[in-house]
């Protein structure tokens, strides 16, 4: 599903003439199979967020290749990657990233609007999805009127609405209490089991890391350990 070959990235900071190059990722190679849940762990500054942003296409790698579903996404331009994202990738963010001026329904519906689906089909699919995450009664609520757990469920519904084969999650439980965290992890497992969705999750939370089939640990921009969890 995902193949990463010799990926390296660095950030350039400072003013022109006095720039400093900070290496973030060095020679990263790994792959994620279809139907897997892979978690990436590491301390703050280890480069895990950068890795996810590179896979998401939010930043462009300096070196190396990224392949998703057989397509070399690391070579795609912004517009092409946008089209690829809307058809293949679901996103779950730590701070949910819902549009505050849109209701839960509108937030979930947004990817379908961008895909150009007609209104009737959109309504049906969005309602189904909100039902699936248990928020059909809250469809007219704005994000500000929902709890953290509910907001994250809205964002999951938004990720799922396009039926993506792969979901990229950035600290999905980072803003949740332990009870809702448990619920969410169960839900991710269910989605993986029932729908065969592949997950690449970034976390520093052991509980989250435990749900993965594999855990990759990053330190100072390099893979230091890759653990296959047999219990899953």
């Amino acid at each position: 599903m995902i193949t990463i070959k010799k990926l390296s990235h660095d950030f350039v900071i400072g003013k022109k003439g006095r720039q400093t190059i900070i290496p973030v990722l060095r020679d990263i190679s790994f792959s994620v199979e279809k139907g897997e849940i892979v978690t990436i762990v590491g301390r703050s500054g280890s480069g895990k967020s950068t890795l996810l942003n590179l896979v998401s296409g939010f930043i462009h790698p300096k070196e190396g290749e990224i392949w998703i579903s057989g397509e070399k996404v690391s070579d795609m331009n912004e517009a092409k990657f946008a089209d690829f994202r809307i058809h293949n990738l679901g996103f779950i963010f730590q701070s949910f990233q819902l549009i505050p001026s849109m209701t839960a329904f509108q937030n979930v519906e947004l990817p379908l609007i961008l895909k150009g689906i007609n209104e009737g089909d959109r309504r049906k699919q969005t309602e189904e999805m909100l039902k699936k995450v248990g928020l059909l009664d809250y469809q007219d609520h704005y994000p500000g009127e929902l709890s953290g757990g509910q907001q994250q469920r809205v964002s999951i519904a938004r990720a799922l609405i396009i039926n993506p084969p792969l979901i990229l999650a950035d600290e999905p439980t980072g803003s949740l209490d332990s009870e809702t965290e448990e619920e969410l992890l169960q839900f991710i497992k269910e989605l993986n089991r029932d729908m065969g969705i592949t997950f690449l999750i970034i976390t520093h939370d052991d509980k989250v890391a435990e749900i993965g089939d594999r855990t990759i640990e990053l330190r100072d921009g390099r893979i230091v350990e890759e653990v296959r969890l047999l219990c899953n």
């Binding site: 946008a82 089209d83 809307i86 058809h87 990233q97 001026s101 961008l114 396009i162």
Partner: peptide
């Protein structure tokens, strides 16, 4: 911020 979210989930810059 809204534009950022839209781009993140796959809005084409042209749109």
């Amino acid at each position: 911020p809204d534009i950022g979210i839209m781009k993140a989930i796959g809005a084409n810059p042209k749109t």
